[in-house]
Design a binder for these strands. Structure first.
Lengths: 108, 108
DNA sequence: AACCTTTATCGTATTTTTACGATTAATAGA
DNA sequence: TCTATTAATCGTAAAAATACGATAAAGGTT
């Protein structure tokens, strides 16, 4: 079916999966790294940096925005995308908790 | 196209994305959590625990195995899946480095 | 107002993912 | 050997993800 049975899983499980999904494409990792490198608010230079069409990059930005990882601010005709440090620390703790939990496994 | 332009991105970017993709489904998070909870090597009880068909669970296990997160050991007619703590610590460091890198962003 | 720049959205094609039932393979036990 | 159990694989259908070009929207500039 290709349709994930979201309702059959816990809120936390879906949340972790959604965060992971946002990071599950090299282009989105590249976008985050590019934004991090810049010491200022950067905009559509992302498109030039990536080997993808403008509309495709826009889609990737939308996905990062949908999980709150980045914020877009309109600056004249352009849009400035920035990493949301609050969302980032939330992701960090969510993954951190998962890893600690999973690490409890003692078998093998 | 639905076909990720893997070759256009760095090895690290693809690696992070691949790891994230393995975690990008609630069923796979549930599997990892279930394996962690058990203090022993657990096998096909996973199927009973999850709201999915046996073949579907098998597919998810395959994906977790493909990134090395779990290992399968044959135990009689059954198979015992365990978390690979070495792979887990690698994932931890990969995500950790990404988060630290991204955290450098000072804009906004 | 007309125009240019920048970005989002729409429409579409292709690939991948998710999911299931059915079948196969492999092992244990009667 | 025959049978039951367990898990992987195959075939298939439906949905989501990826990608692009074209178009629209929104903001400056002349």
């Amino acid at each position: 079916m290709g349709l994930t049975k979201t309702k059959e899983f816990t809120k936390t499980q879906n949340e972790i999966a959604a965060m992971a999904k946002a990071l599950a494409h090299p282009a989105r990792i590249a976008i985050l790294q590019f934004l991090a490198k810049q010491k200022s608010c950067v905009c559509g230079d992302i498109v030039e940096e990536l080997p993808l069409a403008q509309s495709t990059v826009s889609q990737h930005l939308k996905e990062l925005k949908s999980v709150g990882l980045i914020k877009g601010e309109i600056e004249g005709p352009a849009v400035c995308y920035c990493i949301d440090l609050k969302a980032l620390s939330k992701i960090k703790s969510i993954f951190g908790e998962l890893f600690i939990e999973v690490e409890q496994n003692t078998c093998c």
